[in-house]
C-alpha cells in the first residue's frame, strides 16, 4: 500500500517533468529556433499555398517531371509504410517489371538504377539517386523539349552526398528538383 502511494507520487512527478516539462522545453526551443523544420519542412508556392513537404515524397506521373521511387502506400503521408515484401517475393518482380516498362529504356547494358524500382521504408522517400535522376533525363528532355545535357547538368547541380564523406553515392530531392525545373523553365520562358 505504501508502495502504491509512493509509486503514484513518482508517476505524477515523472509525468509532470518528463512529459510536460520536457515536451514544453523541446517544443519551445523548436518553435523559436527552427520553426520551418519544426512544423514539417513545408514548402509553399509563390501564392502561399502548401505544395508539399521537402521531406515527403509526392506522386509524379507526368513525363515532364522526375518520378520518385515507388511507394507501397501510394504516397499517403498520413499512413506511411513500406512494402515489407521479402526480397525474393514475386510481387517485387512484378512491380519492377511494370516500373521498368513505365520508365522505358532499361537494357542489360543500361540497367535501371535499383532505387527507381524499390519502395522505401516509409514509402515517402523524397530522394532518388543521382543515377536514378540521370536515367530519367532523356524522358524529361523529350517532354520539355530541351537538351538532355542541360537536364543532366541541372540534376548534377542539385545532387549532393547525404552524409558528406561518409556516403559514396549522391542523391537529389525529387520535389526540389521538379520545383526548380519548373522555375527554371518559367524563367527561361519569361526571358524569351
Amino acid at each position: 500500500m505504501l508502495d502504491l502511494i509512493s509509486g503514484l507520487r513518482v508517476a505524477a512527478a515523472t509525468m509532470i517533468i518528463c512529459v510536460v516539462g520536457y515536451t514544453a522545453l523541446v517544443l519551445g526551443f523548436a518553435q523559436a529556433i527552427t520553426p520551418a523544420t519544426a512544423n514539417g519542412s513545408l514548402i509553399a508556392n509563390e501564392r502561399g499555398e502548401i505544395v508539399g513537404s521537402q521531406l515527403i515524397a509526392q506522386a509524379f506521373t507526368s513525363p515532364e517531371y522526375f518520378w520518385p521511387r515507388p511507394s507501397a502506400v501510394d504516397f499517403d503521408a498520413s499512413g506511411a509504410g513500406g512494402s515489407n515484401l521479402s526480397p525474393a517475393n514475386p510481387a517485387l518482380t512484378e512491380r519492377a517489371v511494370k516500373l521498368i516498362a513505365a520508365h522505358t529504356g532499361a537494357t542489360e547494358e543500361r540497367p535501371i538504377p535499383a532505387d527507381l524500382v524499390t519502395a522505401s521504408g516509409a514509402g515517402l522517400d523524397p530522394h532518388i539517386s543521382l543515377e536514378g535522376a540521370l536515367f530519367q533525363a532523356p524522358r524529361i528532355a523529350a517532354a520539355r523539349g530541351v537538351e538532355i545535357s542541360a537536364i543532366a547538368a541541372f540534376i548534377r547541380r542539385l545532387a549532393y552526398a547525404p552524409g558528406a564523406f561518409f556516403t559514396e553515392g549522391r542523391i537529389v530531392n525529387v520535389l526540389e528538383l521538379n520545383l526548380a525545373l519548373d522555375a527554371e523553365l518559367a524563367a527561361s520562358e519569361a526571358s524569351n
Binding site: 514475386p90 519492377a96 523524397p126 547525404p162 542523391i171
Partner: peptide
C-alpha cells in the same frame, strides 16, 4: 547483395538491396 527478386531484370546491381530503405540515410 542485390535484391534477389530482380536477378532476371535489367536492374543495376551495384547498390545492393534497396527495398525498404531510404536513400538519404546511406547504404
Amino acid at each position: 547483395a542485390p535484391t534477389p527478386a530482380f536477378v532476371e531484370l535489367p536492374v543495376s546491381d551495384e547498390t545492393g538491396n534497396l527495398e525498404g530503405k531510404e536513400l538519404r540515410l546511406g547504404a
